Simulated assay, not measured.
Amino acid sequence: MLYIRSSVFFCFSIWISLAMGTTTQEYLDFVLPLVKNAGQELLSVKNVEVEEKGEFYDVVTVYDRKIEQILFKKIKERWPDHKFIGEEESYTKGISQLSNESTWIIDPIDGTANFVRNLKDACISVGLVINKEQVMGVVYNPFMDELYTAIKGQGAYLNGVKIQTNGATDISKSVFNYELSLGVNTKYYDLYMYRLKHLLKHIGGIRSMGSAVMGLCYVATGRMEAYQCDGLFPWDAAAGVLIVREAGGYVRDSNGGEFDLMDPNYIATATKELSDKFMEIERRADQERESDAQNHKQLKF
């Protein structure tokens, strides 16, 4: 029986390879040296000039643009028919709609605010989506020399060593990485604060690291039990979400429903059981927030 299953899996893998023309492993092998070289570029930086893209907390550097352009250029030269979604390009042109075509989704520096302050939680993120499905993810933090990789169905790895979440199910012992920095946006302030008020009564500890992609990777390695952020973009999820799932973790939309890569509001946890516990508490917080908002609206009239 095991032999039959292995044979079926092998034949299925061959079929996928032929259908795609290029195997996912070949995509990974091609992009890895590009990402590593980009990381060396970041390590060589001495002085950083910062610009604000929109809100005061959303910053960009010349290195964000430079790295994105280099990665796009090299990949386009190899596969000119592929599509691309990048943070800096999308800021000026808008986010492209996701199609069934092979699409590279890139964040040249996730955690730019950390990068400009010489904090080590910053990384380069490259995800590949085919037929609207996440099939490959690469995350490289050159400041810690940590390279995370994942291919769908083949597990997740840190510097070539297979990783898994820590399998936690007890929320009272969980360290929760909650990206509170986005709460400075008035659109999300109440959402974050109500949930935080409820969660603090149940969790074992809290962190806010300033990098969505690294937050996901920390769940994948078992360094933390849960990570959550709302109000994100495809490049904040394209690589890291796959890495968590391939490490045995669970990712869902934090507002309920299915996770949407193109409109990601996610909570990533070591297990589904832990995720369910977080969601139960957060639904109560959301109900309280909605009730208070309704009462406030009625008082105004």
Score class of each variant (00 low, 15 high):
L98F: 08
G111V: 04
K74F: 02
Y91V: 02
I106N: 13
I70T: 09
R65I: 11
L98I: 02
I75C: 07
I75L: 15
N100H: 13
F72I: 03
L71E: 07
K73F: 03
K76Y: 11
F84T: 09
I105D: 07
E87R: 15
D107N: 14
E88F: 03
R78F: 06
D81F: 06
F72N: 10
L71W: 01
S99G: 06
I70L: 12
F115W: 02
H82T: 09
W104M: 05
S90C: 13
Q97R: 15
D107Q: 12
K76F: 10
S90Q: 12
G94F: 01
F72T: 08
E89S: 15
E88N: 09
K93D: 08
E77W: 00
K93V: 08
N114H: 11
L71H: 01
L71A: 02
F115K: 01
I85F: 09
D64M: 04
I95P: 05
S102T: 02
S99P: 00
K76P: 00
G111M: 02
D107V: 05
F115D: 02
I85L: 15
I105N: 11
K76Q: 15
Q97G: 12
P108D: 04
P80E: 13
P108V: 09
L98E: 05
W104L: 06
E89C: 03
K76H: 15
D107E: 04
L71N: 00
S102P: 00
D110M: 11
N100W: 09
K93H: 06
F115P: 03
I85N: 10
E68S: 11
I109L: 07
K66M: 10
I70V: 13
E87H: 14
K83A: 09
E87Q: 14
Y91A: 07
D107L: 12
S96C: 14
W79S: 00
Q97T: 04
E89Q: 14
I70Y: 09
Q69Y: 00
I105H: 07
E77T: 04
N100F: 11
S99R: 15
D110S: 13
R65Y: 11
S96G: 09
T92N: 13
R65L: 08
K73L: 06
L71V: 00
L98K: 13
W104Q: 07
W104S: 04
I95V: 10
T103F: 09
I106Q: 12
K93Q: 02
I106S: 12
R65D: 14
I95E: 02
W79Q: 01
I67R: 06
I70P: 09
Y91P: 03
I105T: 08
I85W: 02
P80L: 05
L98H: 08
R78N: 12
F72A: 04
I75Y: 08
L71D: 05
D110L: 00
G111W: 00
I95G: 01
